[in-house]
Amino acid sequence: MPQKRISIRIDGELVSTVEGKTILEAARDAGRRIPSLCHMDGLTDVGACRLCLVDLGGGGRLAPACTTPVQEGQAVITNSPRLLAYRRVILELLLTERNHICSVCVANGNCELQALASALGVTSVRFPYRYPNLPLDLSRDRFVLDQNRCILCTRCVRVCADVEGAHVWDVKGRGIYSRLISDLDQPWASAASCTDCGKCVQSCPTGALAEKGKAVEEMVKQTWQVTNAAERKRAVL
């Protein structure tokens, strides 16, 4: 069934798209990037990072572009001063939550968090850093989990459960004490459910999940491979 074409306005510009797409997709089709971290092509969106919030006018609440479907005649604002300020605060908050020491991180230069901070002009953080004492899981042969860099985007959780079907990862606890865990919060190597496929590593936007043996700046994620795999799987289903 051919999808119905509709038009919406994004930051004043008339954009033609099809029904069923999200605002994020429609904007990208039109060459406009809305910042996001928890979104990854091929995975179900969860609307958790709140970076892609857009203003749909009418004084209503802001809506996440990744989970809000387009509607005929919609007027979307993606870059008002308020939205930009909020996005910067979100990045500031993420930077203080864990120990993001870019200079010694394997993902330095290839990190989505670092890149967004740079793109949005976050040059300092006004909130005090938490400096939590977090472990590094080196138990596995090929991969590393560094909790210090995790932003709880749950891309790994979703890719593992939905694409690989293993559901090794989940999040324990709640609030600021939420942590990524494998199986019963045990060393990754002892998690029997893991297939060693590495999709989680390639999906991770930061240096939290990385290949072992990579030095600073060496970890480049092949996110597109995972996206392809996810889309292949979806096509089969």
């Binding site: 120990n99 300092s124 977090l134």
Partner: peptide, 19 residues
């Protein structure tokens, strides 16, 4: 002017802060 990550974020010297 805060010059460099250590001055701006704490950076490597702050890696001891958890202990």
């Amino acid at each position: 002017v805060a010059l460099g990550d250590c001055a701006v974020t704490g950076n490597v010297p702050a890696m001891r802060n958890r202990l």
